[in-house]
Structure formats: structure tokens, C-alpha cells
Write a protein that binds this DNA or RNA. Sequence first.
RNA 1: GCCCGAGUGGCGAAAUAGGUAGACGCAAGGGACUUAAAAUCCCUCGGUCGUAAGGCUGUGCCGGUUCGAGUCCGGCCUCGGGCACCA
Length: 825
Amino acid sequence: MDERYMAEQVEREAQRFWEQAQSFRATEDSSRPKFYCLSMFPYPSGRLHMGHVRNYTLGDVISRCRRMQGFNVLQPMGWDAFGLPAENAAVQNGVAPAQWTYANISYMRDQLKRLGFAYDWSREIATCRPEYYRWEQWFFTRLYRKGLAYRATAPVNWCPKDQTVLANEQVIDGRCWRCDTVVERREIPQWFLRITQYADELLADLSNLPGWPERVATMQKNWIGRSEGVEIRFEVNGYGPLTVFTTRPDTLMGVTYLAVAAEHPLATAATAGRAELLRFRDECRLSQTAEAAFETMEKRGVDTGLRATHPLTGAELPVYAANFVLMSYGEGAVMAVPAHDERDFAFARRYALPVSPVIMPLDFAGDPEALVTDAAYTGPGRMVNSGAFTGLPSEEARARITEVLERKGVGTRRVHFRLRDWGVSRQRYWGTPIPMIHCPHCGIVPVPDRDLPVRLPEDVVITQSASPLKGRPDFLHATCPDCGGPAERETDTFDTFMESSWYYARYCAQDNDHAMLDARVGHWLPVDQYIGGIEHAILHLLYARFFNKLLRDEGLVSGGEPFVRLLTQGMVLKDGSKMSKSKGNTVDPQALIDQYGADTARLFMMFAAPPEQSLEWNDEAVAGAHRFLKRLWALAKSIEGLPKPATKTASADHTAVRGQIHILVDQAVRDYERYHFNTVVAACMSVVNLLQKLLEEPASESSVGLLREGLSFVLRLLAPIVPHITHVLWGTLGLGDGAVIDAPWPEVDPAALRQDVVRLVVQVNGKRRGEIVVPVHSDTAEIEERALRDEAVSRSLEGKSVTKVVVVPGRLINIVAATTTTTLP
RNA sequence: GCCCGAGUGGCGAAAUAGGUAGACGCAAGGGACUUAAAAUCCCUCGGUCGUAAGGCUGUGCCGGUUCGAGUCCGGCCUCGGGCACCA
């Protein structure tokens, strides 16, 4: 054993052992309970960043811990390899996206291996490989035949100068990031998946996910946004019926105008001879597609000149084209009630439209008009100015008005979702080709199974941000599978969320080249523990849940949910904000590994903060983590030479220390189950501190026994976190027969935890005044008497009379006392 | 704009079910060892008053519940994250 801790050497030795023993190769062995632990696979951006190191260390700690507990663990790794950065890099450096991506994968794989993660590398996946995406194409054609995939138009950001579609991140202040041209919104035909058909199930199943953080479930719930309401048909003069959706039928009597999206057919119909309306529609085309931009922009509109009739009062209402109404949500038209809706209110004030209150809060007695002079009232209350409904509570009016509308045949109860169908088309090169053929005779025809995969050509030169696929005759030209005539291939590719929606299942059948999935998914799925960033709380996790249900309905998997338990790790911060290239505050993990080794990197990540919280980067604290490993090494070194004691039990003079150690170990074992790895490390540090003190005593059979017992605990507890150093020290000290990863998980000795006396804090009126030591099984009266006898306690009770005594067993005793002296002024 | 989350020493944090606030570590200050430095080890370390014993005060702010609140409830403030073409 080396005098000093030399991380690189230690880590090489441990990794060679795991490699030779094939320690992490997972087989479908049913003799042990399975545990599928999955970390979100990375985008191969070039180098690992701190977020990856944190994510993958967490997954590895959980995997290794479960393995030691006797589970048959599967922990795979792969690459989310399609995406925009590869194209940007290609434009910048003149390297083909494929070449760039494969080089990145190769470098990052080495980094992961250097960190000692217990992956089954034989199951590695790269989503840009045809062996992977062919099954996605295959599955998509199944969905198309079932009617779950369809084509419709949807808005995109369009740069008129570059003649290309831009991602939201490529639009900066409404302009193209490359040429600074003002970006337009354009409607183009795209492919969609009918996720809305699964909206109810996706919502309902959230309550079957107790292993998910509450907040992720809440975010998804809000995202799905189920709302119950009524569709109301307004008759519009010279246009016909206009359907609006509202969740507030109780406010119907307060409607003072209607608003439709600028691209609504009604608005188009009304543009004839109205230049202002045309101009407005063109302006709206310039607005961005992101919700944040949409919600914060100024609410504006133009009168279409058309007039609608109120279905109950017969009143004439103006119809506006407005920029705050989305064509893609609901009916693309709303009824506006400025008195009871903030947005309608702001709009009405701007265009001097009437505000007519119909609901008053119960505690409001004044003039209803006065209620809504400054802002809308959005709460419940009693109906006013509402004809037959006046005087009713608004909740009741909601039902009554709905009934009346239904009876008159102008209203229908409906459930709407905020969730929209998933647009999966991307007008980009570096993605999975959408397996569809456009035939001039037969229309859209899916590529037959025998012609899959539709391969993405990798030998391309990207000069513009536009997709090179349109300019490749070898890709573009196809033969129609139905009529055999000349046809064209679809040049759009899939949203990369498609690949990441089913990779967790493919790991189980990674080598199958004649089916998407096979019986092995039945052995491993669902994923027992999924770990990734909170930034994926909605989209990725919702799409993956959706895909799991699609796979189930195709008979490919059996369960309804893919991830039993979810851990969302916090971000890695530097100087209080997220590490990012644009902020220039990144720290390269490679430098950390080179200087201190993988174990220090892993230890720091686990110790600095609990998993769910953000983690503040700190160079000095990293050095501190390294220092602990050196102390651990030195401690083991000093025990190495001591003769092994014959008996394991500590003698009487060590029962107190042994008790303390067992309490700490007990704590650490329970903290593992809570995933509080930072306090596991803290407990291990405390044990090491105790053992170091013990080492100062002259060595005895008892002290050496306890040193070996304590170290055996610490090494096993730390093995999942710092696997290399613990592997080597475990072997050197001969603490078990095999390697530490095969050692049994620590169990404390209940006898060591038993205590004869207990320390109780004594409070007077809730303030700490003293401390007493009493036998463990003392009764309340005994404790009370001892507490009152305590000197400090009796001093603070002078001039007071005890009114009540609260005894919390094993914890404290609180004496409640009132001042008896009444002579105070 | 909407949704979600977080605020505890100089810093990262701990406090499991409402019961000793600050475990563990970092930084800082003092000391030991050394020709010197590095490394290592020992001591101090929320604020404040006090020579000390000890007291007062303290978990973003205001209020409430309770014998007792960092923890529960109501109302604010600040910061961070997500918002459908970044992944």
C-alpha cells in the first residue's frame, strides 16, 4: 500500500478490476430482484459539463447502492445524438454534423469511463444511427395507419432573407440571429401526433406516480390544463355561426365584444376591402410563436366590422381580430367579458369598449360599475344585471346559463385541454427522416417496412442554415410504393424529443435488428429510478409517458407508465447563476478530474448539496473533498500494519464510541434510502473523525477491533460514492472475502445502539435553561422532579409558579411558568 | 404575463413526524512542526453585552396558531427555473 493517496493509480486499478470481472454487464437473471436505474442520456455537445457529472454521479451512486443491496441492476448509457448544435457547428467549422457528432461521442465516452460509472456499455445507443431510428420510423408508420399521426398547418419562425425556418433560440429580439432580418410567422404543413387523445389518461395517471416529485406532477397537470366549459355559437351577420369556448358561462350576460385570431377564417372573410385589417394580419405574422413572448406583448386588435348577436339578450356585439387570441387553442375565438377578465379588461380600455359587470362579491355593497373601474373582478359572487339570473350565486348561474344555452341549441358542454397535439416536424437536416413519400397520384404514402430505414445521408456539406436534403436528388427522388410512379420524399425530420421518448425501452433490446423491442422489456421495464434535470419536467417527461402508452397500445410494452420513481437534480451554479457558455462562467470537469481524480469529483458533487437543490461550485470545497480522501487513506494506512484482533467485540471502555459510530452508520443507511447523500458523507466524515481520535490511544485488541469495524462501515457506505478508493482500501485491509462492490450492505448492531442514560434539554417557557441526564426508562414524574432540582432551572424559575410541564420522551422537558409577582407597575 | 421552486453564519449546508438552530465541510484568525515553504496536526469561529459566570438576540419581512415554529397557516418581498423549434 502506497504511503500517499494517488488517485490516478487507484482509479486505474479499480477500473481494470471491474472491466475484467464484467461487473456491470446486466443479464436477465430472475433469481434477484431487478433494478433499472436510468440517467437522462446526454446530447453529445463535445465535452461533459458539470451538470452531466452531477446527474451521472447521482445515477451511479443509486445503482451501486442497489447492487450492494442485492439487486440485479441495469444501468445503461447512450447518446441523444440528433439536434441543432451539430448543424451550427457544421456551419461554423465546416465539419459534417455526423462526423462532428461521432467525434464528440468518442471523446465523451472516454470521459464517462474515466469517471468510473457502472454502465453496461454493451447496450450503448446513439440515436443518429440507422439501427436506432429505423424503429422510430417503423413505429411512426404504425401510428399513421392508426390515425394517431396526421398532417396540419402550424406556425413557424421564418426568415425571409435566408429562406429558412428558425428555432425559437435562433430568434433574437424578433430578428434572425445570422442576418438580423425581422422574422415572420408562417403557417406550413407539418406532422403531428395526437397526444390530445391521451390527455385524460396522461392526466389521470399522474396520481399513480407517488415516486415523482409533487411539483413535476403539478407542472404536467397545469401543462395538460384540463378545463371544463361550454362552446357557444354566436350568429355573425354576413358570416354565419361563430363558435367560442369559455370556462365562464356565468359571465355570458357581461359579454361586450368577441375576439378572433388574426388568421381566423372570419377575419380573412372580413378583410375584403379593409386595408387596416389586412395590415393587422400581416403585423401579427411578425409576432413570435413562443408563449412567453405572446403573453407579454401589447394586446391589440382591429374591428372586423362584423357584428354578432348575443344568444340570450339579442344585443349586437362587435367582433375584433386580436393578437392575443391563438388560432391553435380552442376555437381560435373568444367571448370577451371585460368586467371579469383581466385581458379583456385591458383590451376594452384600450379600444373604449363597454365594461358591463354581472357578478358582485358577496361583501361588496356599492355600485357594480364602481367595482370594475380600475380592474376586472375575477372571483365568484352574486349575479347582477343578468336578467332572469340576477340574484343567483355565480356558481349556480354557471349551470343554469349552460342549461338554457343547451336547450336553445346554441351551447354544448365541452372539455378542453391546454395541451395541443405534438408537432413533430422539423425543417432541419440533422434528425430522423420522416418516413413518408409524397406521390402526385396517391398523395401521402408511408414508406413500407421493407424499405426502412430511410437513411439520412451523412456526407453533406452545410453552407446555409437551410436543410441540404432538398438539394440531394439521391435522397429526394423516390418511387411511390403504391403506384410505382415517380414521387418525392418528405425532407422534414423528427423533433429530437421523438428519439428520447422511447430510448429507455430500446436499452432492453438494443441488439435486436428485426424488431423494435422484444420480450426483454418485460424483464426490465418500468425504469425503477429515472434521474435528470428539472428542465425536462414537462416536455421530455410528458412525451416519454405518452410514447409509453403508444407502445403499450401497439403491444410492445405492458405497463402504462415508464418511470416509477423520478429524481430531478438541481442545476450546477457558479456565482449564483447557471453555468453556461454565454455567461462565461463554466468550469470544465476534465480539469477537475485531471487534478484530483474521479473520486474527488464524485465526492464533491454528492457532498456539496442534496440532489434536488442547486449546487454552488466552489474550488476550495473541492480541495476539501480531496483532503478527506487523503485522510481516509492515511487512516487505513495506519491500521494496515496493526495485528488483526481475534474477537470483533469492543471492550467496555469503547462501548460509548462504538455506540456513537453505530448511531452515525444507522443514520447514513437511512439517509441512503432518502437519497440524502450529502449527509451520508457527513456521517462518514464524523466516523472517520472518531476513528482518528481512537487511533491516538495505545492500540489494544478492543481499539483495533473497533477501528476495523468502523472502517469496514465507512468503506462500504462510501463505496457507491467514491468507488475507486474504497475498492483499493477494502482489498488492502482484507475486510471481506471479495471486492467491496460485492460486500453486503452495512447493518448496524442493535445492541450497540442501546443506551442506559439519556440527555434531556430543560426549557423554561420554551427557552433552553439546562440539561439533565436520566436513566432511559425514567417516568415523567421522575424526570420532572430532576429537572426542577437543576440549579440553572430553579434559578430561572425564581418568582414564578409552574403552571404546566411538557415532557417529550428522549428529547426535552418544557416547564411553563407564570410570574407570580404582581407588584410590577 | 402564467406556472413551479428557493431564501438559515463570511460561504456550501444540517436539523427524519412541531421539540437543544448551525451537525459535516469550506474560508478566516491563532498556534505546533519546518532553515523556509508546501503538506499535515491542534485550538477559536452567528451577532451582541460581559473580565468571567452568564444574559439578550438570531433561520428574507409582517402577522397568526402552539407549552414550544427554520418547520404549520395568512399576507408580502427578493432571487432562480420552465413556458411547446435549445436539449
